[in-house]
Design a protein around this nucleic acid. Sequence first.
RNA 1: GCCUUGGUAGCUCAGUGGAUAGAGCGACCCCCUCCUAAGGGGUAGGUCGCAAGUUCGAUUCUUGCCCAGGGCGCCA
Length: 586
Amino acid sequence: MTLLPTHPNFKSHFTELLSRALNTFSNADLGINIEFARPKQASHGDYSCNLAMQLAKPLRQDPRTIATLLINAMPASPYLEKIEVAGAGFINLFLTISTKQQFPRIVLEERKEFGCSNFGTGKKIQVEFVSANPTGPLHVGHGRGAAFGASLANVLAATGFSVTREYYVNDAGRQMDILAVSTWLRYLELNDLAILFPTNAYQGEYVRNMAELIYKAHGNHYVRQHDLLTGDIASVRIKGEEDSEALLDQLIADTKNLLGEDYTYFHNFVLTEQLGDCRNDLMEFGVVFDTWFPEQALFEDGAVAHVIKLLEQKDYLYQKDGARWFRSSDFGDEKDRVVQRENGQFTYFASDIAYHLNKFQRGFVRIINVWGADHHGYILRVKGALQALALDSSKLEIVLVQFAVLYRDGVKAPMSTRSGEFVTLRELRQEVGNDAARFFYLLRKNDQHLDFDLDLAKSQHNDNPVYYVQYAHARVCSVLEQWGENLSILATADTAVLTSTVELSLLRKLIDYPEIVDAAARELSPHLITFYLKELAGEFHSYYNSTRFLVPEIPLRLARLSLIASIRQVLVNGLTLLGVSAPDKM
RNA sequence: GCCUUGGUAGCUCAGUGGAUAGAGCGACCCCCUCCUAAGGGGUAGGUCGCAAGUUCGAUUCUUGCCCAGGGCGCCA
């Protein structure tokens, strides 16, 4: 038996063998990718390759003949029991049983490292996600971005990338001004001043709470009397003002004038308050960032002005209707986009360009933005701006996450930001728990709409997938505790007695895990981990019911315990990537 | 109208250029003297939206059509 020093990468190993076989063909260089699949059916082997069928046409030969030639030309592998030609010309590879039986040991030796790889070769990569405006509590849509981004970053880190997790803080724009003004208006209310409160200002209860904090700390210090905001003129302005957004802009300008220096206090107060709340919320959710990148910095250090100047010099900007436009239609966008408004203010797009230039300057090899699906119209303009700056826009990968819709008692939960009527992430976490929330968010592909079933997430039944997986872990813990001996001897257990169908299937499942992590990283699809864990837990539960572990025969007992201990390790590793806990008892 | 994502079992959804298309739930029938029944086993259930094309081979890729969700601002 060949003792495996560590977990071999079977796919690359076999690719190497087959490509050497292929090279013995005189006309071998056909640019065909050698790929291995894992057949669904055990009788089709552990790995399957369709190379011969792909070669059939260019070589003008029968695929089964080519397959036979390839097999004969393949160097021997210590891992292989046999190689077969099957079906229309598949090359099916069968691992030796002893190779498979070494996996419990490998898992127990590598522990947390099992499933990790050096696929990323330490390349600097950035994952930017959530990046919600700090203008109110995070809602369940942000929660999905948070769960997805955090797990994606974990997966990329596990596969050898040097990952920076970043949150871009929109602390400079108009929305922050609206929040500051909204808070000031609520503050005036607390001082018994009759004022207008525009319908498109922030309506949420948290705005009143902030106003109250300021009122308690500073009394009427920030009260300003002005007929712009009270009495007849205010109502006239509301009635007469058709464009409510323009009214808000005016209100912001008025407030800045009235408060002068004190406006900064309001702005900073609401920013600090909301950002702190957001940070806590995410931290409790198990989502942490390496960098919180403030938009304000891009204005303060002149990066925005600089990038606008660059684009200007390259003739990608022009004036129209008093505003300044970027020629994004030159890059496939359906129309040009404003970078500087008529009132002189830069749009978010302007600072976004500066921000992305900054990302490139920081030397990331790959830049991944996780955006809500509603931003998909932004992709072309941002990439266009990068191209205009002569940067390689393919370094920027944008992953869109669709919205999540909550269902309670089979009925859609209301979701309207404008009215302030929405379920916050914090409420969701309190209702279903962090684990269920993290797991449920990754129950669907990112580009799929997610129906989040609150009742299911809360239920403690076998149909709740998060409990199903965690329960498998708890069951292993329980068995090992009853066994009560030192776990370290399991790594050296003789597993040659693991030969039943379910045991072989479980061994194969262990072998799958690193390939699943690898695929999740390549495809930026952490949900693959979720599906894998459900399957692994399912096979384990089946094993548990069919087979007794604590049997009298010691070698058999140790072998089975070794297997379930390694399953436990893989469950822990996978759950860790998802940010879900693995409780010992349930 | 344009962009985008979907349409796979009664429901919710995986999956894949290949071999007999999978899982969970629901339905029906079983399994605790036994390591946690928050579990397991079994039965039934399919024109992979429709049509053409590419291919040795298409549920998968292309195009068209039908249906559904989402997005299309000098908002972010």
